[in-house]
Design a protein around this nucleic acid. Structure first.
Lengths: 146, 146
DNA sequence: GGTCAATCATTGACCCGTCAACTAATATAA
DNA sequence: TTATATTAGTTGACGGGTCAATGATTGACC
């Protein structure tokens, strides 16, 4: 139990370190941030989608989504239009240009991912994914008012 | 191999999700950010230390360390003084008040960590820690110019 | 039909991080 | 000893995130 306790802190700390070290490298390797590519990938999978619906698929809040999309619009990667049937909704879709440039990012991302998991065989990957999923469940069940 | 490839992306994405979901909850549960508590914990373990030496122990850059410490100084958690023997160095140390308030944070942190790893037995923890360490190694070996 | 509530998007204030430029102090070496 | 390099710390510009307040639009209900 004493070992288990001392490992506990290390695991959570390691997760924290990994994320802090991975984010900047991901961005340098692929040329885009994880969040933004995540956003674009969701857009890639659909034709047109409302911002809130998009937001629910992604780990960032409304405000950040709005700002990302405004910047992406300026860059000509996406277009936005109001839902004619309900003007509260903003529909977003990739431009053709945006759609083609994503695949380059995706390729870089795939190369990056392979490096991160270098040396892990199939069994280990599945084990790891399973554990991470359990951790994610635990985290989502944590209630700050406790 | 196809399974392995599809899992690859999920693992890295899960790591990304976990960190994004954990950080805000950690802060709400413990009342302090992971980075700041990390900084304070290092300070707790020593008597007096220079800022660069402190920075090397932590995953944040010089600028952020400076800003953290200035804020902590305003709150009365730390004191700073120049090294009389070399005025380039800024020595930092916890105040008595800072030293006592850390232990409360540490307790909350420990409770938080236990929740995150709920349901993991000792063997799993050690396996997981091992895998995460390998991933961290892989990440640190990634060269953006490649 | 008009008021009230709910929903989507936007904005502002703030926190935290990086990078790059800068200042100040010290070390080095011609 | 004086010019140059190095080192520690600070600051400004910026990117990106959250939360809370606001505005606009629509739905629901008396």
């Amino acid at each position: 139990m004493s070992n288990s306790c001392s490992d506990e802190g290390k695991i959570v700390y390691r997760l924290y370190e990994i994320s802090k070290q991975t984010s900047p490298k991901f961005e340098r390797c692929t040329g885009i941030s994880q969040s933004r590519l995540d956003l674009l990938t969701k857009l890639f999978e659909v034709d047109e989608i409302s911002q809130t619906e998009l937001q629910k698929e992604v780990n960032i809040d409304h405000a950040a989504v709005t700002r990302h999309l405004k910047q992406l619009e300026e860059k000509g990667m996406v277009t936005r239009r109001k839902n004619p049937a309900d003007n509260r909704f903003m529909f977003v879709r990739l431009t053709d240009e945006g759609r083609t440039s994503i695949s380059a990012y995706q390729d870089e991302k795939q190369r990056f991912i392979s490096k991160v998991l270098n040396g892990f065989n199939e069994e280990e990957r599945s084990l790891l994914l399973n554990m991470l999923t359990r951790i994610q469940d635990n985290v989502s069940n944590i209630d700050p008012n406790d």
